[in-house]
Design a binder for these strands. Structure first.
Lengths: 339, 339
DNA sequence: TTGTATGCGTTATCAA
DNA sequence: TTGATAACGCATACAA
């Protein structure tokens, strides 16, 4: 079984290819009767146009590319979920790639997407991406680009983020309001913007409350994973005993690692040490104790990102100038039993 | 900036398009010097061929389609992870779709993939898929198809699964060896094959150990989620108090729901009730108590699935007859503190 | 109202 | 060793 083409239909109906094409496209200059004959036959043969030919001619692909750092990640899988739903509803396909936090690979994947002729690109950058030539290339090619979550501030394109500074600031302020003074911070990798911003939020909250910033209370969790959190908690206790009131962490997974260590050492949460995460993973609602966190609204971020992308793609098609948008998704503190 | 074409290169070098094409393809009938000139220019212009034109001509797309029931799922995101890595290494792109457990949508997505001209399709069926015409359509179009995890036994194509019967059998046998006799089962939806098989494994293990099967110990968890597990545990205790020794569950998430309920009611795990899950989610290693489970090797399943798909695609290209494969991925009991 | 001709970019056959 | 030409399937400007 092979795919039907316009030519076959034209031959059967003894019409020209262009007439068949016009009938299908609903052009007015086709007789009602011819149109009907064509539609009936294409229906019964379940004809669908060859998308390669269409793309070659129209220079569009009805496809968007998405690059994320990692798939196995509650936050990103939720974002992808939202993107797939929205793309689906527009009859667009999604080509998904993951950079595995590898800047080189990310660059290669951008080339692949450009080569593949996608109509737009959604990206969340790898932590190791410090050079943005590949993003500039996308822009030079005049392909709409929307960065989300892990963005590059200086690249001229639309962006969707949360306000990481404010989110962490609010989180730490909450801990302070609760009476905590010695608040440790488990920070993420040094380079990514949102890692920096969350750290700044932490520092600013201390400052605004006249609590001296103590660098010895900051623990680096470069991979921001369970193990990093566990190890950091171990170091924290070795360094400071339980003179610490609370821990705020770059992400829930590190916080959960810390909780695990504290549980193991019979350090009570929140009585001895309060713990506050970031991202509100599903997991956080079911561990013991349940973890308070910052809800990042991944679904909304995915929806907004692809909405803006479609906006830009529409504008481009209409020949309008594209205005880049910068959306900040709101966050909420989700309180549970860990603080 | 627009993409370079063969014609532009030919014009610049004052050659014909076909000579340029042949030079790039490494044909022998091009002079060394010409070849060198062409390669240097294409390099400096960073020429890449237009994939639509290539696809139109070659009738291949270097793209595979993947349909899964849900993205936000530890098991599936691990499988996708493996698929993306392997496709990447072969310079293939992956179009990803999720059926959201909706048979109608799944059918539509198959049509989209066929229309899009993918070279092969990987699918894990929705729980509600009981009609397989869309799969037959893929086969009729002569597109290689590999089903994984959620398969349809009777559809003639390659399949990658685990031995669900054996996996659950072994799990229950382990509980019995530990001395448990009154073992409840939280079963999944009634229709999916692996849900059925796991249930059969449970029954068979009881039977082989001369333990009477008691239908009142089976609780239906149609969505196999946290809430279902929590509710089932609640019912279980209401129905049977703590006369039950152990619970085996269709998946970790339901088991975790149950653990949550037991913890809340101060029912001790494993002293009062042992709990044994299925799938070995990451989460299971960090809850309290840590959950014993059946490791399903998602990564391996993803790797094998796409390996077979590439096998079939290669065979098809070479005009060889395609032999369908049936791979069973091994599983292991992962013991932790819940039983 | 219908049909002819052309081009999208690449590749392969055949001629020069 | 190189080039002219046709074909992949579709869509449109233009001619009939």
């Amino acid at each position: 079984m092979t795919k039907t083409t316009l030519k076959e239909i034209a031959d059967i109906l003894d019409l020209s290819i262009s007439t068949v094409s016009k009938a299908l496209k609903g052009y007015p200059d086709v007789s009602q009767q011819t149109k009907k004959r064509v539609l009936e036959l294409t229906e019964s043969l379940s004809y669908t146009p060859n998308t390669f030919a269409q793309s070659l001619r129209s220079r569009t692909s009805k496809t968007i590319g998405v690059i994320i750092p990692a798939m196995v990640h509650y936050f990103f899988s939720n974002i992808i979920d939202a993107i797939l739903r929205e793309a689906e509803s527009r009859d667009y396909m999604v080509i998904l790639m993951q950079s595995n936090e590898d800047a080189q690979l990310e660059k290669k994947q951008v080339d692949l997407l450009l080569k593949k002729g996608v109509d737009g690109i959604l990206m969340s950058l790898s932590n190791k991406t410090h050079n943005f030539e590949h993003l500039q290339k996308i822009i030079d090619y005049n392909i709409p680009l929307v960065l989300f979550d892990k963005i590059a501030k200086l690249v001229p394109c639309s962006k969707v983020t949360i306000d990481d500074i404010k989110a962490s600031y609010d989180a730490v302020q909450f801990l302070i309001n609760k009476g905590h003074q010695r608040i440790a911070y488990f920070r993420g990798d040094l380079n990514p913007q949102n890692s920096i911003d969350r750290f700044l939020g932490y520092k600013k909250a201390l400052e605004d409350n006249d609590i001296a910033f103590d660098p010895s209370l900051v623990y680096l969790c470069p991979d921001a994973d369970f193990k990093d959190g566990y190890t950091a908690a171990e170091k924290l206790i070795n360094d400071h005993g339980t003179s610490i009131d609370a821990v705020h962490s770059i992400t829930d997974l590190t916080a959960i690692g810390a909780i695990n260590y504290f549980n193991k050492k019979n350090i009570r949460i929140p009585e001895d040490i309060a713990v506050l995460g970031f991202s509100n993973w599903f997991m956080s609602s079911i561990i013991t104790p349940t973890l308070s966190s910052v809800e990042q609204n991944a679904g909304k971020m995915g929806e907004e990102s692809i909405r803006i992308l479609f906006d830009e793609m529409d504008s481009k098609q209409k020949g309008m100038t594209i205005k880049h948008q910068k959306i900040v998704i709101d966050t909420q503190l989700v309180l549970r039993n860990s603080c």
